[in-house]
Design a protein around this nucleic acid. Structure first.
Length: 114
DNA sequence: GGACTGACTCGGT
DNA sequence: AACCGAGCCAGTC
């Protein structure tokens, strides 16, 4: 994770996202130790075909136009909660550092998935 | 070496 | 809630 190109770190991170969970572009960037949040999208645009790119979306749960349909379809198939065309980030957002089953640090005080 | 780009994010209106 | 403008930085030309 040091001399490896950012692009590879990004791809590795995306591969780690468990089924049924999502991360925002910003989360991925932070996870790989970069603030190049825009590059995450660029990396996926060129090499995303090899990783579960559909588990990466915007912070507000919406996603890029050209991906919206397929992304939502795939996520829905994995059981990701979707409300009115956007992913329910509160419930599906995954913090790689904390682990797949961690409840959410309560911005809302409630637990994920409820 | 410099300028441009983008699957983003955030704060202010 | 939606729109706008500015900041961000690795890759590409």
């Amino acid at each position: 994770m040091e001399d490896v190109p950012l692009a590879e770190r990004v791809l590795s991170c995306v591969e780690l996202i468990p089924r049924g969970r999502v991360m925002s572009y910003g989360d991925v960037a932070e996870f790989v130790g970069s603030r190049a949040v825009r590059n995450v999208g660029r990396v996926l645009a060129s090499d995303g075909g090899t990783v579960p790119w559909h588990r990466v979306l915007r912070r507000d749960g919406s996603c890029a136009e050209h991906l919206r349909e397929e992304q939502l379809a795939r996520l829905a198939a994995e059981g990701v909660p979707i409300r009115d065309g956007r992913v329910d980030m509160r419930a599906a957002r995954w913090d790689g550092r904390a682990g797949p089953r961690m409840p959410f640090p309560s911005r809302t005080g409630s637990v994920a998935g409820l």
